[in-house]
């Protein structure tokens, strides 16, 4: 079975927030809850990069591990979804998640956070596919219609990819080859102020590499 993943190409992400509003739009996510966000590092400086972050649907999901009521489940596609009817809003999944994916609709004094909400890879929840209940609780179920998450489908620069992990790997690999190979094409001998040498980030090869 295809294992679904997200990948955000930091070389292409321009922090346009299209993915953020596409998700809001498609899933009717209310103010204060953000299933997806764009994080920018080195803001305003050389090496500025952005990444679109939402639930990464981990193989060994920390959220699922720590949930006191075990409301998470993994679908055949490898997606980590949860049952809001079972969720007690304790917030443990939010503590454990490396990506900060779980969101809560209320501010949580006396730990009344409300039901956890997070990116579902536009695959809805345990309710019947595309039913009114599913729509109301979890948002859109695009996967049941054979579509992919809207955030990736609407990404302005195709930085955010979503879909079968092997397909995405292929796409990304091709991009890296494109970028890397083109380094050999640099016939220009002027002094280039290379801005893409941010530490630890893969991307276009620089003069130093």
């Amino acid at each position: 079975m295809a294992r679904m993943k997200f990948y955000c190409d930091a070389e292409r992400c321009i922090e346009c927030n299209g993915c953020v509003t596409a998700c809001k739009n498609e899933n009717d996510v209310p103010w204060g809850v953000n299933r997806r966000r764009v994080v920018t590092i080195k803001d305003g400086e050389a090496g500025e990069r952005s990444l679109s972050v939402a639930c990464m649907h981990c193989s060994d999901a920390p959220c699922a591990a720590v949930c006191p009521v075990n409301c998470f489940y993994t679908t055949d596609d490898g997606l980590v979804l949860h049952d809001k009817d079972i969720c007690i809003g304790c917030g443990y999944c939010f503590y454990a998640c490396p990506f900060g994916a779980p969101q809560f609709p209320e501010d949580g004094a006396f730990a009344s956070r409300g039901k956890m909400d997070k990116c579902t890879f536009c695959a809805g929840g345990p309710e019947e596919d595309n039913s009114a209940e599913e729509r109301r609780k979890y948002g859109s179920n695009r996967l049941a219609e054979g579509k992919l998450p809207l955030c990736a489908e609407m990404c302005a620069t195709k930085a955010l990819l979503a879909g079968d992990a092997s397909v995405i790997s292929d796409i990304y690999r091709k991009r890296v080859v494109n970028r890397g190979a083109s380094v050999l094409d640099w016939g220009v001998s002027y002094q280039k102020a290379s801005l893409r040498s941010s530490k630890g980030m893969k991307g276009k090869a620089t003069m130093e590499e």
């Binding site: 927030n17 764009v38 994080v39 803001d43 990444l51 972050v53 490396p98 990506f99």
Partner: peptide, 16 residues
């Protein structure tokens, strides 16, 4: 450390 237009505690943190 990162930042995000999305407001929230630690929304700019990439990895917790």
């Amino acid at each position: 450390r990162g930042g995000s237009q999305v407001q929230g505690v630690q929304s700019g943190v990439l990895i917790n």
